[in-house]
């Protein structure tokens, strides 16, 4: 495959441009991984979508919410938590932008702060659970309790998974593994982290506020 991209001779109707654009192999692999991540997130979006669908199904019918005799979910700490996770997305995005420019130091700072903010999120989430337990809302307290705990558990598990990955990225960054041309995993995990943040946003709106 030697001759370089000549446009097709004339207006040959048979000719259709090759769909895959042939960049350098590394670049191609990166795009492939990116496509994979997009599809993975679409898939996982359906998973969370199903949870929201279920929640919506009950809420659409409910005449009162929270159901009689059950406490409303306090909003103070969850609001703080929303800010925390939003901030963590910002720091991670900043880290990504920095490494695109080749700034390894800012990358490390950004990664470590995201990692810490992630931990803070889980810690605060833990506090919310404990507090709610104390005012008598358990995961066994009917659908209301189930849906609150079930959804936050599943979400928190995804955050925890992300934190583990971030920890690994931090270590690698400290070892100067990443550079402007080589930071695919940062890019992919940033997508994941934003995704988890967006899911949180939707959850905060629907499960906490509404």
């Amino acid at each position: 495959m030697s001759s370089m991209s000549n446009p097709p001779a004339g207006d040959d109707p048979e000719w259709v441009a090759p769909v895959v654009q042939y960049d350098s192999p590394a670049k191609r692999q990166e795009t492939t991984a990116w496509v994979g991540m997009v599809i993975f997130l679409a898939s996982w979006g359906m998973m969370f979508g199903a949870l929201f669908f279920m929640y919506g199904g009950i809420r659409a019918r409910a005449t009162e919410w929270p159901p009689q005799g059950l406490p409303a979910i306090p909003l103070f700490w969850p609001t703080i938590n929303t800010i925390v996770i939003a901030l963590s997305s910002v720091t991670l995005q900043w880290a990504l932008i920095s490494i695109r420019k080749g700034d390894k130091k800012k990358l490390t700072v950004g990664l470590v702060s995201t990692f810490l903010l992630g931990l803070a999120f889980v810690a605060l989430q833990w506090k919310v659970w404990v507090d709610l337990n104390e005012i008598g809302l358990m995961h066994t307290s009917g659908f209301y309790g189930s849906v609150f705990y079930g959804m936050t558990w599943i979400h928190a598990a995804h955050v925890a998974f992300g934190i583990i990955a971030l920890g690994w990225l931090c270590i690698q960054a400290l070892r100067h593994f990443y550079s402007a041309p080589r930071h695919l995993s940062i890019r992919l995990w940033t997508m994941y982290w934003h995704f988890v943040g967006i899911v949180w946003g939707i959850m905060f709106l629907t499960v906490y506020i509404l």
Binding site: A50, F53, M54, G57, I58, R61, A62, T63, E64, W65, P67, Q68, L70, H139, T140, S141, G142, F143, Y144, G145, S146, V147, Y149, G150
Partner: peptide, 24 residues
């Protein structure tokens, strides 16, 4: 948890719903 268990009658809005599972 009680996502799909309707529980005792009179739980009102707090009852789970077995039909939800069928939808999913």
């Amino acid at each position: 948890t009680q996502f799909f268990i309707a529980g005792s009658t009179g739980m009102g809005a707090n009852a789970g719903d077995p039909i939800l599972f069928q939808h999913l």
